[in-house]
Design a protein around this nucleic acid. Structure first.
Length: 602
RNA sequence: GCGCCUGUAGCUCAGUUGGAUAGAGCAACGGCCUUCUAAGCCGUAGGUCAGAGGUUCGAACCCUCUCAGGCGUGCCA
């Protein structure tokens, strides 16, 4: 019933006015890089340089130990970072500061001995400096930077992908809204996030499956059936006092109308249970079909739709409970069965089977997650509405009860969306109890804009979604800003073609790329692989939207200063075309991983 | 009450997992189209990173406390 709760809270939000503070961030595990080794990757950009520098520094320290200029014999962890300011070089290391204590020398003194050993190294380094409290700053040769362009060209749509995932099986379960009503805007954010995380993990070398969990068992289906039956009777002329706890939306009337067309008035005279059962089934099927359609229109397809009811039909709920009982995680008290979640740090134990014999939703979740792992997934990720954060310890307990590590389950909490129009909250039609649906939003602003907006913020930070802004065709609108960069590049290639300049990248004279704008564009491109990997293992697609805006900005700036097609300099033209070809590849790869198109023309 | 969490520019948010002078977009102000898409670019201004201690070479980030705010806390789903 996750979806409904999300919806209710959304309504509360809207009635109460905008929420001030974002919901808590707890949950998502950080991926332990130690679990998987770096593969060779495909076009590693700046990562490759960092590794070379690390090796070089290591050799330098070894040299110092060998000739006695450094004496401790203790190797620090060698970290190489990109400094915040360009004056501090392309990369920097803090090893001298880390070694200072053990060497009993000032950090800068350590740096000085070390730098002497580094000077002789590598065709990568232009110069080395000691700066600030003891940083060693590296300036990379332009030629080395330019070589990255060839890597990007060679990798093409593979540029940025890595193999940290090492083919491990991961399942991402998301949306999972009840089949009791259409998807609303809150589900949209969960959908965009889940889908993007799945794509990111795929790009990071995991073997990913997307799954939708259908809550088709339990009370809400009866409520749906009853709602349908009552509307049906109402439409056939009976006087009905429609209960408040039934589903109020107009889509229920559509279902009732549909039933009348197909089955006439036969449910007027059948027993209530039969009618309820019929409308539960029929309504559920119809709504689920609509959900699937809305998701497809949003560019999302699931590999698997998993029915909660099937857990019961196949006896998996009792089996799971029995297993947990055997392992001593479940006990009986007051006529009910309890899971000992406190054993794993939860506040209190949780009921699995009520004293009336009916299982709780939690029981289904135990069976469901047991089943996920039984299907061979190394890593299981749930995407939830953030109002479910209280359930995290419970599910983590289950996973541990199953004999897995708590971190084998990753939970992404997605915060609520406030819908705005020109800065003003969008009023919901409280009369019908309906929310703005995902379909309405996608129809109005388009799939690309909707996706980008949903992914623009960290998922656990609350999101303002302004419909007018999302539609606006100006630089206020980040979606168009980014897509425009791609279209502009394609347009330059069109112009080149019209002017009889055929791009030829076989023997590009990269050394002609010399301006500050050429170089900073190249350096920005080199960042993509590590941004992608970081976004993947941290479940943070927003890092990609920020990177895209950054890269697009770099390109637009380049565009305004640098002429690409210059008839009098055909070789420079080719070099710049090659550069932009690589920018287009990177823009497109990053957009694609978020499920957003890279238009040829705008 | 207890538990989890949040506080960064007027607004909306980033901040590379502890690095150097805290960034971006809006909003405000001033410039740039006879030249490949102005859906664009350049510049100016804006800060006690809620507050106070602590840890260390170094803190927006880690620890403690205070203040403010949010969410959770069913034999519901």
């Amino acid at each position: 019933m996750r979806g409904l709760r999300l919806a209710r809270t959304l309504l509360q939000e809207i009635l109460r006015g905008r929420r001030r503070r974002p919901l808590p961030r707890l949950h998502a595990r950080r991926y332990d890089k130690g679990r998987a080794r770096h593969g060779t990757g495909k076009g590693k950009g700046g990562e490759d340089m960092k590794e070379q520098l690390r090796a070089c520094i290591l050799k330098g320290i070894e040299g110092c130990f060998a000739d006695g200029t450094l004496t401790s014999g203790v190797f620090p962890a060698i970290s190489v970072e990109k400094p915040a300011h360009a004056e501090h070089g392309d990369f920097a290391t803090n090893v001298a500061m880390q070694m200072a204590k053990q060497e009993r020398k000032a950090p800068r003194a350590v740096a000085e001995v070390l730098v002497k050993k580094l000077a002789e190294a590598s065709d990568l380094i232009e110069s080395v400096e000691i700066a600030g409290p003891g940083f060693i700053n590296f300036f990379i040769k332009d030629a080395a930077w330019r070589k990255i362009l060839s890597d990007i060209d060679r990798a093409g749509d593979q540029y940025g992908k890595s193999r940290v995932g090492a083919g491990k099986k991961v399942q991402v379960e998301f949306v999972s809204a009840n089949p009791t009503g259409p998807l609303h805007i809150g589900h949209g954010r969960g959908a965009a996030t889940g889908d993007a995380v799945a794509s990111l993990l795929c790009a990071a070398g995991f073997n990913v499956q997307r799954e939708y969990y259908i809550n088709d068992a339990g009370n809400q289906m009866n409520t749906l059936g009853l709602s349908g039956l009552l509307r049906y009777k109402e439409l056939l002329g009976e006087k009905i006092d429609f209960p408040e706890n039934c589903y109020q939306g107009d889509y229920i009337k559509d279902i009732a109308r549909d039933a009348i067309t197909k089955h006439g008035d036969r449910f007027l005279n059948t027993p209530q249970e039969e009618g309820v059962a019929f409308f539960a089934k029929m309504g559920g099927d119809l709504i689920l079909k609509g959900i699937d359609q809305d998701l497809q229109d949003f560019g999302i397809r699931f590999d698997n739709w998993f029915s909660e009811q099937s857990l019961f039909d196949e006896g998996k709920v009792p089996t799971a409970i029995a297993e947990m009982q055997e392992k001593g995680h479940i006990y009986e008290q007051d006529g009910a069965l309890w899971f000992k979640t406190t054993e794993f740090g939860d506040d209190k134990d949780r009921v699995v089977v009520r004293s009336n014999g009916v299982t709780t939703y939690f029981a289904s979740d135990i069976a469901y997650h047991r089943d996920k792992f039984a299907r061979g997934f190394d890593w299981v990720i749930d995407v939830w509405g953030a109002d479910h954060h209280g359930y995290v310890p419970r599910l983590k307990s289950v996973v541990q009860g199953l004999g897995r590590k708590a971190d084998d389950l990753g939970i992404i909490l997605v915060q609520l969306v406030s819908l705005l129009r020109d800065g003003q909250p969008v009023a919901m039609s409280t009369r019908s109890g309906e929310f703005v649906t995902l379909k309405e939003v996608v129809d109005e602003v388009g799939c690309d804009a909707a996706r980008f907006f949903f992914l623009m913020r960290r998922s656990d930070s609350q999101l303002d979604f302004d419909l007018e802004l999302a539609k606006r065709q100006s630089n206020d609108n980040p979606v168009y800003y980014v897509q425009y960069a791609h279209a502009r590049i394609r347009s330059i290639f069109e112009t080149a073609k019209e002017r009889g300049v055929a791009p030829c990248f076989d023997n590009v004279r990269l050394e002609l790329l010399q301006t500050a704008d050429d170089m900073s564009l190249i350096k920005k491109l080199s960042l993509y692989p590590e941004i992608l990997e970081g976004a993947a293992v941290n479940f943070e697609p927003h890092r990609i939207t920020y990177y895209l805006q950054d890269l697009a900005g770099e390109f637009h700036s380049f565009y305004n200063k640098s002429r690409v097609i210059t008839p009098e300099e055909p070789e420079l033209t080719q070099a710049r075309l090659f550069l932009l070809h690589c920018v287009a590849i990177t823009l497109k790869n990053a957009l694609t991983v978020l499920g957003i198109s890279a238009p040829e023309r705008m």
